Simulated assay, not measured.
Amino acid sequence: MTDTQTSPLVTVTLESGPSSAGSIDDFELFYARRALDRFRTRLGRQGLLDLLAADIEEGNAFLRDGAAASDGRFTAGTTVLTTRGLTSGAFLAWMDKAFAGDENALLAAHPEHYVMTPGAYGSFNVVENIGPHVCSFYMGGWGTDAMAWAEDADELLPESDFPHKMSSNLFLADGTVVGRALTQFGDTADGFTASLTVYAPTACPQDVLEHHLRHYAVEFRNWITAAAVGRA
């Protein structure tokens, strides 16, 4: 077994030792996830909120200012994932169950997930990074008149190909809308395609949108994998 890791300054090759399959990066990811899970478990939800209180205040102020400067305008970006070996229906059934009360499964999908729990009036509270900022926001209005914007979105895909659609405003506790989300799923011959669109206030730096497209890729890949494992 050989595994070569390179950087601009040095090349390191694992020639022998571990008997398990995987690269050094795979080993590091396993241990990083295990350490993160330990800290999340020890701190608990309120402990995490207390620890991140100052970061959340700063992050929410960033989003509030960006929304005010954007005057209701948003910039869209879309991450597309293809899956083989699982239908969209099976995946979305797993998601429904997770969002109904399995916070651990939701948190495990991304290192920068801190809180994911039902909020008041049918909303869902999320504490995670938006770009470099830790923010606490709510998702809500699924399928209601508040989501009329989605009916005219340029990113809306044909119903025949993507019949499973969910849209939401992203808003702060004071009601300020700081983003939007539109997720669309359609089956293929051997799996499904997920089109995951996020809308950031136009005044926000481009890297905020770029990082959330990466965020989508990480969290949905891990949720899809978890759903497949759950069916096995």
Results as ranks from 00 to 15, higher is better:
residue 33 R to T: 10
residue 25 D to R: 13
residue 21 A to S: 15
residue 31 Y to M: 02
residue 18 P to L: 03
residue 61 A to D: 03
residue 32 A to E: 08
residue 43 L to I: 00
residue 19 S to I: 10
residue 45 R to N: 10
residue 59 G to I: 00
residue 36 L to T: 07
residue 17 G to H: 09
residue 33 R to D: 14
residue 28 E to A: 15
residue 53 A to W: 04
residue 41 T to N: 10
residue 34 R to K: 14
residue 14 L to N: 13
residue 42 R to G: 10
residue 21 A to T: 13
residue 40 R to Q: 13
residue 21 A to G: 09
residue 49 L to A: 06
residue 15 E to T: 09
residue 43 L to Y: 11
residue 37 D to S: 11
residue 28 E to M: 15
residue 24 I to S: 11
residue 24 I to W: 10
residue 55 D to A: 02
residue 21 A to M: 07
residue 47 G to L: 04
residue 43 L to A: 10
residue 36 L to M: 05
residue 48 L to F: 04
residue 46 Q to I: 02
residue 58 E to M: 08
residue 59 G to K: 00
residue 38 R to Q: 12
residue 62 F to Q: 00
residue 48 L to P: 01
residue 25 D to T: 14
residue 32 A to K: 12
residue 14 L to H: 10
residue 14 L to S: 12
residue 15 E to A: 09
residue 42 R to E: 12
residue 62 F to R: 01
residue 26 D to R: 07
residue 26 D to M: 13
residue 16 S to C: 11
residue 42 R to H: 12
residue 47 G to Y: 01
residue 29 L to W: 13
residue 51 L to A: 03
residue 29 L to T: 08
residue 54 A to Q: 05
residue 50 D to C: 00
residue 26 D to I: 08
residue 37 D to K: 07
residue 43 L to M: 06
residue 17 G to T: 00
residue 26 D to C: 08
residue 52 L to F: 01
residue 45 R to Y: 06
residue 16 S to Q: 12
residue 31 Y to E: 03
residue 62 F to P: 01
residue 58 E to F: 02
residue 39 F to R: 05
residue 14 L to K: 14
residue 31 Y to V: 02
residue 46 Q to D: 15
residue 45 R to P: 04
residue 16 S to W: 13
residue 19 S to G: 15
residue 55 D to L: 00
residue 19 S to N: 14
residue 48 L to W: 02
residue 28 E to F: 15
residue 27 F to L: 13
residue 30 F to Y: 08
residue 25 D to I: 13
residue 51 L to F: 06
residue 55 D to T: 00
residue 34 R to E: 15
residue 35 A to M: 12
residue 57 E to K: 06
residue 62 F to Y: 01
residue 31 Y to G: 01
residue 60 N to I: 09
residue 19 S to H: 15
residue 37 D to V: 04
residue 36 L to G: 12
residue 16 S to D: 15
residue 57 E to R: 07
residue 60 N to Q: 10
residue 60 N to M: 07
